[in-house]
Every structure is written in structure tokens, then in C-alpha cells.
Nucleic acid binder design. Structure first.
Lengths: 302, 302
DNA sequence: GTCCTGCTATACGCAAACGGATGAACCACG
DNA sequence: CGTGGTTCATCCGTTTGCGTATAGCAGGAC
């Protein structure tokens, strides 16, 4: 009736691809090398094609095996999400919730929120996956995503928060040394901290600030966190969130007339709506994240 | 080392949820009822919670089982995608490619393109999933998606095509009977065909056309296909793609000054970039789909 | 009322899959 | 150039898990 390969074979395939050898995969899976070899053989005969070229030191994956890898990985992340969803009794707050966010948000804004959350629900565990890539798919790579772009995919429960305000900032020491620019054109005489590679969001920003070009940057860093750190250490003038800069009295906003605004969304898969602890984390994030210029810096207390 | 449940158990779980009974699931899986019962028992003890309440006529899924169902389904669609990717030798065009698109596109535009494609690659099989839901996740539910919204998720290979132009149309017979509106305000005296429930795209459209309100519609249909059919049969005035209407000499464009434009995107998961036949279908779609007003109706020939 | 059809639960024999052990090939290192 | 540490392949005894068969129960048709 149904001659599809056993899903366990896919799991073994992924383990072998990740580990690089049958033996290492066996160790990772908690099984033995003959079993892993059998699984690979079974999958190869089921697919009618070779997956690895064997050699005595590890095996080299075929082009086919490489092309199957992302699918197998998706299955693995989904299986992990299923387990997270199942762990802990339903309606209880025991278990793990996985959040993905940008590094700045994860480092600067989330800790106090998560601390409060943990205090309210001592059995709740949090996994943080910080990345500036737009969370890849939400395909169960995380339970909840914090994003700076509006989600378009269906089947997502999205909540819009007050947008994030960004502005130019510098350390007081730097301004004492190099002076304070009065207009955006003055920036060419300053040490400007900017991005390295471009992302869509940045390109939109750059379009609104013509004089800012990648080549004029004195320091280029992809990591927004590194940019904030550079601003804090007095390297020069850079863009960072107003809500973050306001916490540090040594940081001064320059060119205050220029404010960039990014949307802020909290996104969760619709399927998790009924999951009590995902819901609790979602609600806590919605309540705790206000990165707009008007925010009283509530996230900084605690 | 690794005490996660065997992935095969998830597959069985999904089968039981879908089938409604152990026996039916066993038939669907090509196995036997005791085996399915064993799998369910094993998963229940692994999760430490009940998944079904047993009774003599079928079993009723627990709330927990229901909450796990979408995850299991994602695993199943991923497994299917993996199998599609593996079927047929790499670099060959044998195998299946699954496309999702709106019903109108699937019915009106795709057939000739797919016909050409099939002629060029006789071993290529196509699966069409027509739905107006925005393809849910692209999480391997389909290999290629044709969309009217800009994709924001990363890890997607997206190609923008000339946008789709929409305009008001009616059958010549209807206009002979009811007259031709000269301005948009005249529509209130006509039989207007419109949508039933609102979607984000429609809401944006409605914002630009104030006099059009859901309640003034003489015929409300969610299916765009049904709307086109209603226009063709002379029911009244409705919105449809200019490229479609132009093929039928009996259809007349009314209020030609009003053109609505939707973006058109072809989206594929990045992982499939190296897959020869997905690539071939992707390229054929990019080349064959031009639904803009300027299109010479090329998709209509053949 | 009885029969029939579906379902689940249980018992039992067997085959498939597993784990452990061994051997051969290969690399790094001394 | 030998030695220790990898790796994969193979063999074999054991066990897990499968399928067949059967019992028991609920509900619908007649």
C-alpha cells in the first residue's frame, strides 16, 4: 500500500551528513555503526541511487545526498518542535519555547523580559536563536519570531508593535573630540559606523539617506551589536536604536531630526495558538517590547 | 545519548489522526492494526501523556494529539518533498514538481505553459495545488509557488514578473442590456460581481475604490474563477485580469481608466536551486507568465 | 430479538533488525 | 617504519518488533 521509506532512515541520513562518518553518526544517534550502515543501505536501495561514496576514513556524500539534506533538516527541526509542543502537560507552563530574534533585540531587550517570564513560570525554559537572517522559514525553526519586516505568509499569528526608532548616536567623548555635525552633509567629515553587506532593510534605509554610502564608512560591520559596541566605545557616529542609546547617559543623539523607523512584529505559528506556554511567551513579548522613541525605557529597568 | 522517539511513530500518529481508527490507519500505512497500536502506545509512553481515548468504534484524539497534528503533517509534507527531490536521477528531468498557485492562474494561464514543458521533458510530472490561501508556508508544501504578494521570508529564491493588471469587464450581452457605465459612480446602478470574504489584497483594492462595498455586490463569490465565469456568462460587471478577458472577444472592458495592479512573484525554496527539474519549471514559468496589460496574450496561443 | 460489521485488545510464532565482536584498510605520529 | 587510532565491512547470537489469529465489545440492519 505504502512503500515510502521509513522516516527513521531520513533521520539517520541527516545524522550521517552532519557527523561525516557512520561511526560518528552512530554515536550521535545513540546506536551502533552497523545499524547506521544498514539504514543508509536501505535508503539507497529505496531511492535507487547512491548517497555516499564509501572510503575508509569517512564517506563522501553524493550530490543527491547534499540536495536531500535541507529536507531532512526540516524534518529534524519539525520533530524537535513537535517534542517541544508535547513536553510538559498541556495547559501547563513546563517545557521549552524557542525564540528567534535579531542579535540586538536578543541582547539588549529580551533579557529583562525573559527574566520576568521565568520568575512567573519557574518551569518554563527558553531557547534563544539570535540571527540577522530573517528567521529563514518559520517552518518550526522557532516557535516565536521577532521581526523587523511585515510577515506575509499565511498561517501565522502576527502582532504589530510600536515601530522601532533608529537615530544617529555617538559617545560624548567622540563629540568632544571631533565636534557635533549640524546637518547630514557634515557626516562626510566624521567617522561613520555602518553596515558591511547590504540587506533589503538597509537598502531601503540608504535610499532615504543619500550621502551615506558604503564606501564612506570608517567602520563596516554586519553585526548590529558590533556597531552599537563601536558607538559606545567612542569610535564614531553610527545608527542605533533610540531606546538603547537612551539608557546610556554617555551616548548623545546627533542629527535628532533624522529618525528611521522599522516595523516591529512578533510572529507565531498559528498552530501554537492553543499552546499555553507559547501563548504566555508571546503575550509577554507583546507586552514587554516597546522600542519606539516614546518608550519610557521600561525594558531597561529590572 | 539520544532518546527521542523514532520518527516512524510520528508518521503513525498522523495516520491515526487522519484515519480516525487504528485499523484504518493500518490500512493506509500498509501495515497491521497491532503494529499501529504498538506505535501509539510507544509514543504515548515516550511523551508521558495520553494521545487517544480508546473506544470500540475508533479512538478520540486528545487535545495533545490534536496540537501535535500540524507538526506531524509538516513532517509528512517534508518527507514527500524529499522523495520528490530524490526521485529520478540527479540532473535528469524525470520526477515530479509540485506547484501552488491561485485558481485563476492555474486554470487560465498555466495549462499552455505546462503543456510546452511536458513536451520538452516527457519524463517530467507536475502536481498542481490550486488555492487562494497564500500557499500556507512554503515549508515544502510545494516546490514552486506563484504569488500575488511580495515574499519576505529569507531562504527563498524569488523572481519578480511584470505585474498583473486587473480591470472591470462585462459580457457584450450584458452591456447591450444594461448599458455601459461611464464613471465608477455609475456602478451602483449595475450588477456588480465581487468577493465574499475579504483578503488583505482585496482590502487594499477596496481602499482605492470607495464606492465598491461588499454589500452592494449583486453576486459575491470568493472564488475568482467563479467571478470570471459569472462575467463570461453575462451576469454583470466584475473585475478580472485584463490578459484573460482579452482572449474572449465577447468580453468588453468597462471603465478602462481604472486599472488595478497586483505584483506577481515566482518563488522557490533556495534549496531546490540545484535541482535540475525544479529549475527548469521555474525558468519556464518565469518565461511564460506575463499577465500585464501589455502582454500580447502569448499565453493564450497554443 | 438476532446477525453482521466494524472496532480494539491480547496471545503467540517468526523474521527482521539490532548490538557486539572481529578483521582489513587507511592516516597521523613518533 | 612500526604503532595507535580511525574508519568501514562482515559475521553471529539475541532480541525487538512484526504479522497472523482470536477474543470481546459496540452499534446498525432486519
Amino acid at each position: 500500500m505504502n512503500h515510502d521509506p521509513d522516516w527513521a532512515l531520513y533521520r539517520t541520513l541527516l545524522a550521517v551528513l552532519d557527523a561525516g562518518s557512520l561511526s560518528a553518526a552512530a554515536r550521535a544517534l545513540g546506536t551502533t555503526q552497523p545499524t547506521v550502515a544498514r539504514h543508509v543501505d536501505a535508503l539507497e536501495s529505496a531511492l535507487g541511487a547512491d548517497l555516499f561514496v564509501r572510503s575508509q576514513r569517512g564517506l563522501e556524500p553524493t550530490e543527491l545526498a547534499v540536495s536531500l539534506r535541507p529536507h531532512a533538516r526540516t524534518m529534524a527541526t519539525t520533530a524537535a518542535a513537535l517534542l517541544r509542543a508535547a513536553s510538559g502537560a498541556q495547559g501547563d507552563f513546563a517545557g521549552t519555547v524557542r525564540i528567534t530574534a535579531s542579535d540586538v533585540v536578543g541582547v539588549e531587550h529580551l533579557p529583562p523580559i525573559l527574566t520576568r517570564l521565568r520568575r512567573a513560570h519557574p518551569a518554563l525554559a527558553i531557547e534563544l536563536a539570535l540571527s540577522d537572517v530573517v528567521g529563514d522559514l518559520l517552518a518550526r525553526e522557532a516557535d516565536i519570531a521577532i521581526r523587523m519586516v511585515e510577515p506575509t505568509q499565511g498561517a501565522l499569528l502576527a502582532r504589530r508593535l510600536p515601530p522601532v526608532d533608529l537615530g544617529f548616536h555617538a559617545h560624548r567623548d567622540y563629540l568632544d573630540r571631533a565636534g557635533t555635525p549640524a546637518a547630514i552633509g557634515d557626516l562626510s567629515a566624521h567617522d561613520v559606523i555602518g553596515y558591511d553587506t547590504e540587506t533589503p532593510a538597509l537598502r531601503a534605509m540608504a535610499a532615504r539617506l543619500p550621502p551615506l554610502d558604503r564606501r564612506t564608512f570608517a567602520l563596516r560591520a554586519d553585526s548590529n551589536l558590533a556597531q552599537v559596541a563601536a558607538i559606545r566605545s567612542g569610535f564614531g557616529i553610527g545608527i542605533c536604536q533610540v531606546a538603547i542609546a537612551r539608557r546610556d547617559p554617555a551616548l548623545v543623539r546627533v542629527l535628532p531630526a533624522i529618525t528611521l523607523t522599522l516595523p516591529l512584529w512578533i510572529v507565531m505559528h498559528e498552530d501554537l495558538k492553543t499552546n499555553a506556554r507559547c501563548r504566555a511567551v508571546f503575550d509577554a513579548l507583546v507586552e514587554g517590547l516597546d522600542l519606539s522613541e516614546a518608550a519610557p525605557g521600561a525594558t531597561a529597568t529590572c
